[in-house]
Design a protein around this nucleic acid. Structure first.
Lengths: 146, 146
DNA sequence: TTGCGTGCAAACGCTTTGCATATTA
DNA sequence: TAATATGCAAAGCGTTTGCACGCAA
């Protein structure tokens, strides 16, 4: 999205407030801090990572609030929850449709342009049901020497 | 795969042993029991569900052994680990390439023919890395009344 | 007898919950 | 002041680990 969001360490308070407003989320101190951090660039962070970075910059946000906030953000569609590893969740600040490439050796998660994956319609799907999300995860590992 | 595997409550001991042999897994009592249960049909079971079904049929398999066995099966490629919900893992007995449709309301997991999803090659991928798996999860929910 | 598999219970890591306090409208 | 958000600690849950025992090669 806008290039102004790239190459910054954190969003300004005003940018963060704008994002929360557009999603109808009350802009509390803690939510603004989390937003400023997570949306500084397109990235995938876990609750743990956010907690660690917030305490590094001396922002007082409790563990419960980080979890509550990320859950709220995911429910309102502000962020996308990415489930790769059954041990932890990542929260993705990239609002554009895209898929993921997961490096199984390092745990690194990378975005993949959505054009490379095509989902045709699902003729068997009941009309009472609707597709709420399509998650594509491509797992890669270092090629084995032999 | 073979229709002989469908419509049975459990595999025979011989069928289970054949599967383990083909994957180089030593056929212990407990591994055979788990195999006979999981491969009775194409299905997605969690460790918890396997544990519950085994104890119902009076097969003595401990929790640790169920987890160890499923992990071993996944590593050798006998079963496919499916991560949908960050809370638990499912183990898929369908050996054919396919994708998944997840009913977010009921937690039900359904197979989707792979032909409906096409992954083109990934030109950005380093030659030192190889794709070890592609997981596609289509999340569906009941259509909201309005 | 050496190695591998198993069982039990305890430990672990991530996430959620209960409840009192603080903040906001 | 009524409603919502926060913080802390404890609980919860699926999973893993440590270690002793048992079994097979």
């Amino acid at each position: 999205m806008s290039a102004t969001l790239q190459n910054r360490d954190r969003l300004t308070r005003e940018q963060a407030q704008g994002l929360l407003d557009r999603h109808g989320i009350a802009p509390t101190e803690q939510r603004l801090e989390i937003t400023r951090l997570l949306f500084a660039r397109h990235q995938h962070l876990s609750a743990e990572q956010i907690l660690a970075q917030l305490s590094m910059q001396a922002s007082q946000v409790s563990k419960a609030t980080v979890y509550n906030t990320l859950k709220l953000f995911a429910e309102t569609g502000l962020v996308r929850e990415v489930i790769i590893d059954s041990a932890k969740r990542f929260y993705d600040s990239n609002p554009n449709p895209h898929h993921h490439l997961f490096h199984t050796d390092s745990g690194r998660l990378e975005d993949v342009a959505p054009a490379r994956v095509e989902i045709t319609d699902l003729p068997g799907l009941s009309p009472a049901m609707e597709v709420v999300g399509v998650d594509v995860v491509i797992r890669v590992a270092p090629r084995k020497a032999q």
